[in-house]
Design a protein around this nucleic acid. Sequence first.
RNA 1: GGGCGCGUAGCUCAGCGGGAGAGCGCCCGCUUCACACGCGGGAGGUCGCUGGUUCGAUCCCAGCCGCGCCCACCA
Length: 830
Amino acid sequence: GHERGDGFAGAGAGKRAEAPAYPASERVMEPLYRPEGVEERWQRTWEEEGHYNADPDPKRKSFAIAHPPPNVTGDLHLGHALQLSLADTIVRTRRMQGYNVLFQPGFDHAGISTQNAVEKHLAAQGKTRQDLGREAFVELVWEWLREYGGKIMFQFRRIGASLDYRRERFTMDDAYVRAVMRFFVHLHRKGWIYRANRIINWCPFHQTALSDLEVAHEDVDDVLTYVRYPLADGSGSITIATVRPATILADVAVAVHPDDERYREVIGKEAIVPVVERRVPVIADERVERDFGTGALKVTPGHDPLDYEIGRDHDLPELTVIGADGLMNDEAGELAGLTQEEADERVLAWLKEHGQLEKRESYRHTVALCDRCKTRIEPRISLQWWCAMDELKKPALEALRAGRVRYHPESQHRFAVESLEDAPDWNISRQIWWGHQLPVWECPDGHLTVEETEPEACAECGSRELTRSTDVLDTWFSSALWPFATLGWPDDTDDLRTFYPGDLNTTARDIIRLWENRMIFSGLELMGEVPFRDVVIHSLVHAPAGGRMSKSLGTGMNPLALIETYGADATRYGLMKMASSQDVRFSEGAIEEGRKLANKLWNVARLILQAAEGAEPDERPKTLEERWILARLSQAQRDAERLLGEFDFSHLVLELYRLTFDDFCDWYAEAIKPRLYDGDADARATALAALERLLKLLHPAMPHVTEEIWTNLPARESRLIVAPWPEAGDEGEAGALQRVQEAAATFRRSGVLVPLEGEEERIFEVVVKPERQKANGNADAERERLQGEIARAEAMLANDRFVQSAPAAVVEAEREKLARYRRELDAISG
RNA sequence: GGGCGCGUAGCUCAGCGGGAGAGCGCCCGCUUCACACGCGGGAGGUCGCUGGUUCGAUCCCAGCCGCGCCCACCA
């Protein structure tokens, strides 16, 4: 019963509208490029014309990205926007290169996270989920999804992400639920899913078990209490240190390190636990830290993970004095019903009264918190479902080690491998209300039957009185299936055959263990192949002042607001520019830069289009600057392809900026201006061809402005979004490129004309502006600089050790530099 | 405690063995028909610190100092 969100009014999924009427002639190209309206129009048009659609086609090579499904309750944040920008840039390039591209959208039900959001909302009305009851609560969550799901897809569309929105999937869709059930049953039949009573992370607020990965850690100021435990034989006492006096009631031993000289005599004796006056053994265990506190540890297997381990190994009983709600339970005797803090006070009072409180000191340490609600985690022994990892992770590790999945940057690869190697069995059951209920049925005799759908009778005793487990699955259990459950698995579908395995996954570092590794092992187990070849770990964008961006801290930033101000193209550009190292501070300037690039493109297009009315593009260069710009475009294309292959988006975008500003506008456009004004047909034709190439290169990163310009080009019957990516260009004019670039560099530095040997000098005549001539006034300073350079180069070349040991090319380059400096100096002086 | 990453111009960041860079900001000059959201010019840096390797180090190595993120059962 999930109604799909519809981002645009009237832009129904898959509805194909008539081609929109935006004839070029009716469009006025104003001097200032304004993205408002333009972007939405193209987003709608592309979608309506079906350019985002991915349909199985055996004749074409396919390219697929299953985009990470966001949490339905969340707003689009900068991380999403960045992720979408990166992936969409690749996707659009592949589409132009002729691939049958699937960019898969959808949502994650995000179990505890969603439940937490809805509970917060209820709390604001003074209600709890218990007030509603499970059924009504789950219905309320669905209502939320209907409200927010559409919002998020609207935001995805608004950044220009070319996802196939017809294929929107949700991890709670009926078909998806079926896949999740199949996965559970599959693993259970293999014997890899089992039920066990162990100490787990328990959130007293959500009243559920959590996996280790859902636990956050935080430093807090606490108090370390030193407590004397008398020895039963009256031979003295042993002092332990604890931050949780209330748990003393559940102590079952005191442990010391076997090699600790101080306690040699005590091992094997009995100590008397305060308050409850229980006699417990003093045991030796190597896991006790001699340097901490007194070196003696109170052992409380019921309430501490380490103590639990020690207790198991020493066959100690497991006592429990704290209940599921975090309050003291009936076992705590007269403290029952108290909060832990209250119980702490009572225990401390008892200790003081009996002279067993040695001292208290302030102590800063890290505590475990529920990642969602920040409630202190209560380690608790509890019966939960587990997924054994030993067999499951083997093929995944093999695939990672063999490079069948590669992480970018490579440094993350080792982390992925190591964290998978270390992955312990996975606690997959949760006691929350929102999620996939376990496909486990219990009869009155306690037999469990595991089936994908409700069985008629207990598999063991035939009883027909079956109750379904109320536990739900860890949300990542279902996310693990995303790359293929979205394509119809467990059925054998055309979609699966066409688009699985996919190519790429983009994600942040903190998701590697939660998601990436799990998609890899489940893909291998169920599909027999890894779900993607490459994983791009993108930057984490921090607040401008540093630190995490977070709505609760007030340091969040809404990408939609940026899009409103700067446009989606500029926002995409800016985010990619920022995506350099692993953590990066948000800089609005980067987005402003993107806006200027869009405006620059717009204006150089105006120049060419105004002058080239009626011309046809012709990519046959006649002059030096034409040969040069076409070679330069080819070079830029090669660089762009390489950078995309390396997933180096920040350099890609830098390269596009330089290409546009420095080379296309400042040099090429300036150079051809006089010919353009003169009505030179060749100049117009080549300019149109060059502009087309430029637009194609820029389209994946900045789709809207480029498409908008494209429609204004003469005789454009196809959309830029599906225009063929240029053939790897001819760079035969690399010589011209180098000559012009060199001259350009020289020219810029010195403001002096340097004639090109054997070339027309016209290019410089046309480029020269009055201001540049004036720059000659600066010749003294320039002369001085050149003289310095010459002296430096001469000294270097006079250094025998340099000449003999430096690579020949380096020495040669230095000679050339010296010659050039001398030429330049002559030019100024001469 | 472990892992990853970062300290380069006022700010955000490129560069990572042979001339210290970009964008923004700042200063100067330009409203001539693509763009003043522009163009040209300029100031501004012991490239975190200390050692080492090298003919030569911002770049490689080691050690410090500072910062961020992730992980971690010292109660």
